[in-house]
């Protein structure tokens, strides 16, 4: 564990808490893409399959449970909780996210480090997470303005993988044979997809107005 990875995990945890705060307290998911949340639930479900078979640390297991629990409960809230579901923008959240799942699965079957069930699904979760934000970014452009909590959620979600890239650079220089191109490229693509969001998000801070 290094400071970059810890910062990344805390940023990721913060993004989840901001979204849960928004949905649970003000009972609103306005501007939030259910499709991105569903993709993230699949990402965690396929990435943490080894949660019961390989124990890394209490921290690791605890965080996996937090991410699994929060992603599935957010999907549940947005789908089935009456008050929250009413604020869900179904007409605008139309990105064909299932079209992302199959190519990621095919790619994982073609490009992976080991051809085992767990490894292929783990690799699939990396590819899927890289593109999981697309429905949310498309919804963002359609709804023009978004509230601060949603903006902060997306900012933190994009930032966490950026911090992980620093963690991988650190591990590359400190651990002799830490070379994982698949993880690195997927993480880089994921972070780059947020580039224009980050641009407008920082403009907002400079301009002091809502995220356009």
């Amino acid at each position: 564990m290094n400071i970059f990875r810890l910062a990344g995990d805390m940023t990721h945890l913060a993004s989840v808490l901001v979204l849960l705060l928004k949905i649970h307290t003000i009972k609103s998911c306005a501007g939030v893409s259910l499709r991105t949340q569903e993709l993230y639930a699949i990402v965690f479900a396929t990435r943490y399959l080894d949660i019961f078979t390989s124990f890394v640390s209490v921290y690791n297991t605890f965080m996996k449970l937090v991410f699994l629990g929060s992603s599935f409960s957010i999907v549940w809230y947005m789908r089935y909780h009456k008050a929250v579901h009413r604020t869900y923008d179904r007409e605008q959240d139309t990105f064909r996210h299932w079209f992302l799942v199959l190519p990621c699965l095919v790619l994982a079957l073609l490009i992976h480090e080991k051809f085992t069930f767990l490894e292929v699904l783990w690799t699939f979760s990396l590819y899927l997470e890289a593109v999981a934000i697309l429905p949310q970014l498309v919804l963002l452009q359609r709804t023009r303005n978004i509230d601060n909590l949603t903006g902060q959620y997306i900012f933190l979600l994009g930032g966490y993988r950026g911090l992980y890239i620093l963690n991988w650079i650190y591990r590359y220089f400190t651990e002799p044979h830490f070379v994982h191109w698949i993880t690195w490229i997927a993480g880089l693509v994921q972070t780059l997809l947020y580039a224009d969001f980050f641009y407008y998000y920082f403009l907002r801070f400079i301009g002091g107005r809502g995220v356009e």
Partner: peptide, 10 residues
Amino acid sequence: KGSDSPKDEL
């Protein structure tokens, strides 16, 4: 094992 693989990451 655990040290060189990103599997110890989230």
